[in-house]
């Protein structure tokens, strides 16, 4: 049970949150102009590193805020996103 630091509510148990996957995957400005390959990369492809990973969480049972953190995928350490 991770302890996740919501920027609004402070540290709360993981069960109050929903995982949002890799951060920084912006919705393309003009999807219609992308090739099929580029669009598929946006929709389907994500990093899966061993180590620090910038990811999104949603405080679904709290303040309902989306936020971004860095988590170490081996140790589960959190650090503030630079």
């Amino acid at each position: 049970m991770l302890l996740i630091d919501c920027p609004h509510c402070g540290p709360r148990d993981e069960i109050e949150f929903r995982y949002g996957g890799q951060a920084g995957i912006a919705y393309p400005d003009t999807p219609g102009e992308l090739t099929d390959t580029e669009w598929a990369a946006y929709v389907f492809l994500r990093d899966n590193p061993k180590g620090w990973f910038r990811e999104r969480w949603f405080h679904v049972h709290g303040c309902r805020t989306w936020f971004t953190v860095d988590r170490h995928t081996v140790t589960h350490e959190f650090r503030q996103s630079p």
């Binding site: 630091d5 402070g10 350490e77 650090r79």
Partner: peptide
């Protein structure tokens, strides 16, 4: 306040 929570969390090691 919140900004340094993680840093303190790190220091644990």
């Amino acid at each position: 306040h919140h900004a340094t929570r993680d840093a303190a969390h790190h220091a644990t090691r």
